[in-house]
Simulated scan of single mutants.
Amino acid sequence: MQKKIDFRSDTVTLPTEGMINAMMTARVGDDVYGEDETVTELEHKLSGLFNMEAGLFCPSGTMTNQIAIKCFTRPMDEVICDQTAHVYRYEGGGIAFHSSASVRLLNGPRGILSPGLIAPEINEDNIHYPNSSLVVLENTVNKGGGACYTLEQIEPIHALCKRNGLKLHLDGARIFNALVKTGDSAGNYGQYFDGISVCLSKGLGAPVGSVLLGSGETIHQARKIRKAFGGGMRQAGFLAAAGIYALDHHITRLSEDHFHAQLLADALANVSFVSEVMPVETNIVIFKMAEGYTAGSVLKSLAGQGILCGATGPDTLRFVTHLNVSADQITQAIELITRLKPVKDY
């Protein structure tokens, strides 16, 4: 039976043998009582790494993002983000549901915002307008094909928010991919953001979990919100141990995923059923179908060859590389893609 090559997402990764061993030997306690040593170690490790005061381990990045938004807004406030942002598109309407805030959507190139885009959208103090209170950036940008911010781009956005009394939150779903790409230091991030969500279950390969970073006051509030969201976990150290292992062993290897993504992009740029490949910066490859083809038909043809991927629109597909796709599988996938002859839809 042909083994599937799974490019659907870097969330499909499975724990490595070393990670499983770390999980099985973790020191655990009841984290709701603050007694799980391994959870505390993970929270301290990440808050120290990003030079922030405290951290809070949660089941998912959606939860850390939504907790942060609730911490930084009040009902009738407005959140400013790109129209592609995960917090807006893929978190179940959580901004409205949890925080009763509206959203101001911008159109950054590949989802990357700038002060010039944000400044005109900050509302003046007027009874007719919601209060602009929070800007959310995403790094890397999922729907932007893994595009990433540099600290040089983030600094003036932080300065704009500070001048206007807005909070700044980072959805760091793939923040380590960005850091490996740009060479920036995680320790320099803390000075710019009021909250940072760090996901452990994507490229880093942990099975579960994200950590929200912020000030001691923010995390104190966030802990109570997590409880209300149903996110308080008991012997969560088994999961936190996987995150610690990932931070110790899986960051530098992300450059392999970036290299593999570029190889795939180069191959896709030379096949008849693809008209355009978005520039590759990290581990995401988004490509557009040529005239006569749809994402659905090409996805089905790829699946028939054992290559799994996902559609991001009616005429676009996405490949995501990760630690469970080997160099040999990349070579095999390129050979299959090069030979693939999907049937046109007209």
Rank of each mutant, 00 (worst) to 15 (best):
322 H>D: 12
86 H>W: 12
116 G>A: 12
272 S>H: 11
344 K>A: 12
100 S>V: 01
24 M>R: 12
337 I>L: 15
91 E>C: 12
325 V>K: 04
74 R>Y: 13
215 S>E: 01
247 L>A: 09
142 N>Q: 10
323 L>D: 08
75 P>E: 02
99 S>N: 02
329 Q>H: 13
237 G>R: 02
247 L>V: 10
161 C>E: 09
346 Y>M: 09
321 T>A: 05
98 H>T: 11
169 H>Q: 06
5 I>F: 05
181 K>P: 04
9 S>T: 15
141 V>Y: 05
135 V>E: 00
69 I>L: 00
199 C>P: 00
201 S>G: 08
73 T>S: 06
209 G>V: 13
239 L>H: 07
52 M>N: 03
305 Q>A: 11
216 G>Q: 11
51 N>M: 07
325 V>R: 03
193 F>S: 02
91 E>L: 07
223 R>A: 15
49 L>H: 12
22 A>S: 15
44 H>E: 14
145 G>P: 00
293 Y>K: 08
89 R>F: 04
84 T>C: 04
82 D>H: 12
106 L>F: 04
145 G>Q: 00
309 C>G: 07
67 I>C: 11
231 G>I: 01
118 I>G: 00
276 E>F: 14
47 S>H: 10
39 V>G: 05
177 N>E: 15
100 S>G: 03
201 S>P: 09
239 L>K: 06
69 I>T: 00
336 L>V: 00
32 V>W: 08
119 A>W: 02
254 L>F: 08
131 N>V: 15
310 G>R: 14
59 P>V: 15
143 K>G: 02
23 M>C: 15
